[in-house]
Design a protein around this nucleic acid. Structure first.
Length: 910
DNA sequence: GGGCGGTTATA
DNA sequence: GTATAACCGCCCG
């Protein structure tokens, strides 16, 4: 007998079953336009997996149609209690259908019957033509279809749970042909199939295993009591009573295999996917990973759709430059970008500049490419001199990507970039701070579906990376001109989106845009530090660290690396057998600070480790590093403030981070002593007092909190008095400490659990504190509830000035994620409003200092604090003016209080 | 050399 | 319980 080549199995997918399951299993994801995407992602990734698992097989996807089916005709109550499809799922159905079609998977929606019936019919027909079928479903009812040629697979389960005849027997305890009878007896709550009352899974199985089929059960009712299951004595009566219902249920539960279909299994064929359509959908839904996957190496989205229509010019002659200068002068808006030798704005040398005046029309002016065989280029100084009037003109509007960098670099060439009308990084950030990173490559992919040339593509990466002046001009031109072109295109995509939300336009134009230059100046001002002082501290720290290490080795009885949490854990918990208090997410015993703190009460080694850790941190991060960060030209350290990083609107600082310089310990404060004023100058440190709590008072309008602040009370003391029911001047230190923790907890959206941990009390007493607090400050409770609700309703929260933070997870069915989003919803308006306020203050202070020509500069910002360096003679005037402007930066229903200190160093100024 | 976990500095 | 950046060790390629 010649064995015929086995055909690959036909795959039939129960689309509707996966639709619902994906909807409920996935987090509440959404695209930035609000389109929900969780179910789409879930269903489509399931399809992708099937294609991967069965590359040879034709795959058909079947969905339920809208409207009644024949089952409603025979039983009007069928599926009558199903709630209507949630809107968020309904909005995802069309995209799912469209994407499945674009993937090249034949899709069927047949009215009057259910997906199950279509699948049953197709599977039977396939069997008849000698083709085996695999049905992909999450619905156990389908088990009735299983036979020698038909198996089930649950693609959503890990490891793809296959179920053949044996599998059905193992899982249900009965063969496939009895599944219908099983369902008929048991009924189905969800589909509203009645079944026989009093018969559940166990009874139905006992009946069928004992007597065969439903019909046979009814023929042999007198044998039922002998089966001996619970309630078997009264069962015949019940069965008899509900016989009609049982038979109806069987009819309802039976999947039809004889639906009249216009197509058959032969119509399910592999079709080439429609890449363009898929790209469109993935772009719209922001499925970035899948977009990248669709593209073969080196291919861009534009290769698949239409390539960008571009004319990029490389400017090597004076005539070309003159021509472009003229066109730039006439342009209402142009995009501008500099190419340099370094990311460090204080060291970067300009290598070239690029412009775009309209979509696709861009130019690159190479100025300092420096490699063997590089062509002669226009003189950098001359070109910059020619461009200077354009760049310095307020009326000549520019758009760029992170123009703070370009502004700082140009300042090194004594060019003051003005006329900054837009910055695409900030447009994206204001639009949705968390939707994406705000670098140009990410934005181009997200908003234009364009995969840009990455810097690493032309310069390499890691140790082998070359600087931009080493890059061949041909490649550099393509890269640089594209940057300008894409910047312009991004702006054209982002501006209309921003314009839809007038409050966001205000945040962009009145806060973020004017802040660019303020930050650029602060960064370039830099902070003066005394490296000798830090180096001296480093030596002292090294000595103490060395001593601690020796003592630790003695206690441990062996030498080990104190900096290795792994080795330390080994010593503490295995060798010395100290109790494990907490585990890290990866399961090893935690040696984090609070854990060691607790162990230190009973054992000597943890205390040593704590001191070792804190001193090593100070040494490696601050006393060793800061002197290395001093710029040799200016003798100062120049941080970078990032304007588009945090979710809430705060700035962040890096290289070095000047927003986490120690202050809590005496050792740490010595580091602040190394932040000094130049001779003849002083440092002023001015910080907002309790700004976030004041914002909470304002936003919540809580009477008690408002009056506490209005009367100038110590708010933690006032809270303690209320919560502990004592007169305000009898509040103990410990009560005040607790109240302070409660106040902080409120700002963080605390739970009783978290507060308990913080205070070291039981969860129950923490809850009592919280209850008492809300009793005394009911406005705060109302506010917290309101913000949770409005966050859930809108999907975002807002600061006082209209900045938005999107919180897609606020509707997550995963309670952990939902709760986390709720905490963010509570915290973000306070943290974000505080950020808005200090940003407004910085602009006001900057304007004042510039106009008054005072000998004073802002040099640092630490979230609620501004540090200025001021000529000694002007200190009093600047302190007064600074406080005035910081206080006036917002008009709240409670006073804003600013405390300012003056000193020769940062520690003294506090 | 790159990425990640664990830890710790700040508001 | 919120928001960050940066260090070290460790493991991988």
């Amino acid at each position: 007998m010649t064995k015929q080549q086995k055909q690959p199995p036909l795959i039939l997918v129960d689309g509707s079953s996966y639709l619902f399951r994906a909807f409920h299993a996935m987090p509440a994801l959404s695209a930035s336009d609000g389109q929900p995407t969780g179910a789409i992602r879930g269903v489509i990734s399931m399809m992708r997996r099937l294609i991967k698992d069965f590359p040879e097989s034709p795959i058909g996807v079947i969905f339920d149609a809208k409207g009644p089916t024949f089952r409603n005709t025979i039983y009007s109550e069928y599926k009558a209690h199903r709630p209507p499809m949630p809107d968020e799922l309904r909005e995802q159905v069309e995209p799912i259908h469209a994407i499945i079609k674009a993937m090249g998977l034949p899709m069927f929606v047949i009215e009057g019957v259910e997906a199950d019936d279509v699948i049953g019919t197709l599977a039977r027909q396939a069997t008849e033509t000698g083709i085996d079928t695999i049905i992909s479903t999450g619905d156990k009812d389908m088990a009735q279809l299983v036979n020698q040629h038909i198996t089930l697979v649950n693609t959503m389960k890990d490891g793809d749970a296959f179920m053949d005849v044996e599998g059905v027997k193992t899982k249900f305890g009965i063969p496939p042909e009895l599944i219908i009878d099983f369902l008929a007896l048991m009924g189905d709550k969800v589909d509203n199939i009645p079944g026989v009352p009093g018969v559940g899974e166990k009874t139905a199985l006992a009946l069928l295993q004992g007597l065969g089929s439903l019909e046979s059960v009814y023929e042999r009712l007198e044998e039922v009591p002998a089966l001996g299951f619970r309630g078997s004595k009264t069962m015949p009566k019940k069965l008899e009573e509900h016989k009609a219902q049982a038979l109806l249920s069987k009819q309802l539960a039976t999947i039809k295999t004889d639906v009249a279909l216009e197509m058959g299994p032969a119509d399910i064929k592999l079709v080439e996917p429609d890449k363009t359509a898929l790209l469109d959908w993935f772009k719209k839904l922001e499925f970035k990973g899948w977009i990248e996957e669709l593209l073969s190496a080196g291919e861009t989205v534009d290769d698949v759709e239409q390539a960008l229509d571009v004319t990029y010019e490389t400017i090597l002659t004076q005539q070309q430059l003159d021509n472009w200068t003229k066109q730039l002068a006439q342009a209402a808006l142009f995009a501008f970008d500099t190419e340099t030798t370094s990311l460090d704005y204080m060291k970067a040398e300009i290598v070239g500049v690029s412009f775009a005046i309209e979509t696709g029309k861009a130019a690159y002016v190479p100025l300092a490419h420096n490699y063997v065989g590089a062509p002669e280029q226009l003189d950098r100084d001359q070109v910059l001199a020619q461009l200077q009037p354009l760049l310095e003109s307020v009326d000549q509007k520019k758009v760029g990507q992170n123009l703070k960098y370009d502004q700082s670099v140009l300042a090194r060439y004594d060019i003051e970039l003005k006329g900054i009308a837009f910055d695409t990084m900030l447009e994206s950030y204001v639009l949705d701070s968390t939707a994406t990173r705000h670098d140009m490559d990410s934005l181009a992919l997200k908003y234009l579906g364009h995969k840009t040339i990455h810097f690493e593509d032309i310069a390499g990466k890691g140790a082998k990376q070359i600087t931009f002046d080493q890059v061949a001009i041909e490649q550099a031109a393509e890269y640089a001109a594209e940057d300008a072109d894409i910047t312009l295109r991004l702006h054209q995509a982002l501006e209309p989106k921003l314009a839809e939300h007038p409050t966001l336009v205000k945040v962009f134009k009145e806060i973020e845009l004017p802040l660019i230059s303020v930050l650029s100046k602060m960064e370039r001002n830099g902070a003066l530090i005394n490296p000798g002082l830090l180096q001296k501290q480093s030596v002292e720290l090294a000595k103490r660290i060395d001593e601690l290490e020796k003592e630790a080795f003695d206690l441990a009885g062996e030498e080990f690396n104190l900096g290795s949490a792994k080795q330390l854990g080994e010593i503490l918990f295995n060798k010395l057998e100290l109790p494990v208090i907490k585990k890290t997410p990866k399961g090893q015993p935690s040696t984090a600070e609070p854990v060691l703190q607790e162990l230190a009460l009973d054992y000597p080694l943890p205390k040593l480790i704590l001191e070792y850790r804190s001193l090593s941190k100070l040494k490696s991060t601050y006393t060793d590093k800061l002197p290395e960060m001093i710029n040799p030209e200016t003798g100062r350290v120049h941080t970078s403030y990032h304007q588009a990083v945090t979710a809430t609107g705060r700035l962040s600082s890096s290289d070095p981070n000047l927003q986490n310089i120690p202050i809590r310990t005496a050792e740490g404060r010595r580091i602040r002593q190394a932040f000094v004023a130049s001779p003849g100058y002083k440092l002023i440190a001015a910080d907002y007092s309790q700004i976030e709590l004041r914002i909470m008072a304002h936003l919540s309008n809580d009477e008690g909190l408002l009056s506490a602040f209005s009367q100038g009370k110590d708010v933690h003391r006032a809270t303690a008095a209320e919560v502990f029911g004592v007169p305000i001047d009898e509040v103990t230190d410990s009560q005040r400490r607790s109240a302070k923790a409660i106040n902080f907890g409120l700002i963080y959206g605390m739970s009783a659990f978290g507060l308990a941990k913080q205070l070291g009390v039981s969860r129950k007493s923490a809850q009592e504190y919280i209850d008492l607090y809300f009793e005394r400050y009911p406005g705060v409770l109302t506010y917290m509830d309101d913000i949770r609700h409005s966050a859930a309703e809108n999907g975002y929260v807002e600061t006082l000035f209209g900045r938005r933070l999107h919180l897609p997870e606020i509707r997550s069915r995963n309670q952990m994620r939902k709760k986390a989003a709720e905490r963010t919803a509570i915290n973000a308006p306070m943290q974000g409003t505080a950020a808005d306020i200090i940003k407004r203050a910085m602009m006001s202070v900057d304007q004042w200092l510039t106009e008054s020509q005072l000998d004073a500069n802002m040099i640092m910002q630490v979230h609620d604090e501004l540090i200025l360096e001021v000529a000694e003679a002007q200190v009093d005037e600047v302190v007064a003016g600074l406080k005035l402007r910081m206080v006036a930066a917002a008009d709240l229903s409670v006073p804003l209080i600013v405390d300012a200190g003056v000193g020769d160093n940062w520690d003294q100024a506090h």
